[in-house]
């Protein structure tokens, strides 16, 4: 399933909404999750899963081609943990 198929399904279920509004609704939801993580916030969607930000410490990496040591700065990366209900449903629960 891709974004446009998701929008299509929601539009079919809500014939009273304009297609462009359904697009805005779906886009707003995903945008809100990214905005939250960009602020360092968590987004917890019970039954589905939780998005959070993990810190990766600074380290000395290596250029795999030359073997040269390079300093890699501390950075923050997005992380998703599957919710219990969805995990159970994936396994026939």
């Amino acid at each position: 399933m891709i974004r446009s198929e998701l929008i299509q399904k929601i539009a079919e279920e809500n014939p009273h909404l304009y297609q462009r509004d359904v697009e805005r609704i779906v886009n707003t939801i995903f945008e809100e999750v990214i905005d939250a993580m960009a602020r360092g916030d968590r987004v917890e969607l019970r039954g589905f899963g939780a998005f959070s930000v993990k810190q990766r410490d600074a380290r000395t990496g290596r250029n795999p081609r030359t073997g040269e040591a390079v300093a890699v700065d501390e950075k923050h990366v997005p992380f998703f943990k599957t919710g219990k209900l969805l995990r159970d449903r994936l396994n026939g629960g």
Binding site: L17, D21, R24, I25, T28, I29, E31, E32, V33, A36, R39, G40, D41, R42, V43, E44, L45, R46
Partner: peptide, 27 residues
């Protein structure tokens, strides 16, 4: 940095603000 936890409520609030549907329908 934040450390706040957003939930479904915050997402539906964003939809409510953006599209102007009722809070119920946004949720």
């Amino acid at each position: 940095m934040g450390e706040r936890t957003l939930t479904r409520m915050d997402l539906s609030e964003a939809v409510f603000r953006e599209v102007g549907l009722s809070r119920n329908e946004s949720a």
